[in-house]
Computed example of a mutant assay.
Amino acid sequence: MADLVARRVDGIIAVPAGSDQRHLAAAAAEGVPVVLASRPPEGFDADCVLVDDFGGARAATARLLARGHRRVGFLGSPPAVYTGTERLRGYHAALADAGLPTRAGLVRQGQTEPAEAERAAAELLALPEPPTALFCSNNRNTIGAFRALRATGADTALAGFDDFELADALGLPLTLVTYDSDELGCAAGRLLMERIRERKGGGGRVPAPVLLPTGLVEYGR
């Protein structure tokens, strides 16, 4: 990041992988416009474009609950990941909306690869009272859960966040949270260009987040 600042770039769009954003804060302090995508700024002010992670997860979990499921498991990324935390919040909110308790034993976090998600899903399916449905916070967890369902033959409903290639070819009912990934990048680009123009013109507005809506798509029904 220091190298980019030294090269006098006009602006930076970043997708932070973790919560430590000191390198981005340093760039912003040097007067370089910074726009974040998929993550909010931590410790400094900047524009950001966010997906409605909370609302999407809430809607997908609510869809499972509306179909009569009362034991819904959760497979998610590490707790330190912003998107995973927001999607877990949405899952919990949907349960609360339905008057259902949160069952810590049905939540598995920390999976970053399909193989890890497959093992976590298999653990849930092997419980004395297994979940009748699973909500997965990203496509890698969804793929791992699908493999576990296929291996065990469990008749467990499946929903996940993020559409992915060949999702319609898995051969089982699947509910996925979708959003316009192209618009995520385009919106970040528009914000950055606006900031660059403001910087050159000597003006500027207070940074604010842009929230992209999500929708649900059904496969195999």
Rank of each mutant, 00 (worst) to 15 (best):
Phe54Trp: 12
Ala117Thr: 02
Ala57Phe: 01
Glu198Met: 12
Ala121Asp: 13
Leu24Asp: 05
Gly144Gln: 06
Met1Phe: 06
Ala167Tyr: 05
Leu95Asn: 04
Ala117Glu: 07
Gln21Gly: 05
Val9Met: 09
Phe74Met: 11
Phe135Glu: 06
Asp45Lys: 13
Val81His: 09
Ala169Ser: 14
Arg108Thr: 02
Leu170Pro: 06
Asp162His: 08
Ala26Pro: 04
Ile196Tyr: 09
Gly68Glu: 14
His92Gly: 10
Asp47Arg: 10
Gly204Glu: 09
Arg190Leu: 12
Asp180Glu: 11
Ala148Trp: 00
Lys200Thr: 02
Asp3Met: 08
Gly220Thr: 09
Gly110Ile: 06
His92Cys: 14
Gly220His: 10
Leu192Tyr: 13
Arg205Phe: 03
Arg70Gly: 02
Ala25Ile: 05
Thr152Met: 11
Leu158Cys: 07
Gly56Glu: 02
Arg108Ser: 08
Gly68Leu: 13
Asp97Cys: 14
Ala167Trp: 01
Pro173Asp: 01
Asp97Gln: 14
Gln109Val: 09
Thr156Leu: 05
Met193Glu: 13
Ala25Glu: 11
Thr61Met: 05
Glu183Phe: 10
Pro173Glu: 00
Arg195Phe: 07
Gly160Pro: 08
Val72Thr: 00
Gly203Thr: 07
Thr152Lys: 11
Ala66Gln: 15
Ala157His: 05
Gly171Phe: 05
His23Cys: 11
Ala157Arg: 01
Ile12His: 03
Glu123Tyr: 01
Asn139Gln: 10
Ala133His: 04
Ala26Ser: 10
Gly171Asp: 10
Thr156Ile: 04
Pro79Ile: 14
Leu184Ser: 00
Pro130Ala: 13
Asp182Arg: 13
Tyr91Ile: 14
Asp10Lys: 10
Arg205Gln: 01
Ala27Cys: 12
Val72His: 00
Glu165Lys: 11
Glu123Ser: 08
Pro131Ser: 10
Gln109Pro: 01
Phe44Gln: 05
Arg71Ser: 03
Ala60Gln: 08
Leu170Val: 00
Phe146Val: 05
Asp20Leu: 12
Asn138Pro: 01
Arg89Lys: 13
Asn138Asp: 15
Leu124Cys: 13
Arg7Trp: 06
Ala126Gln: 04
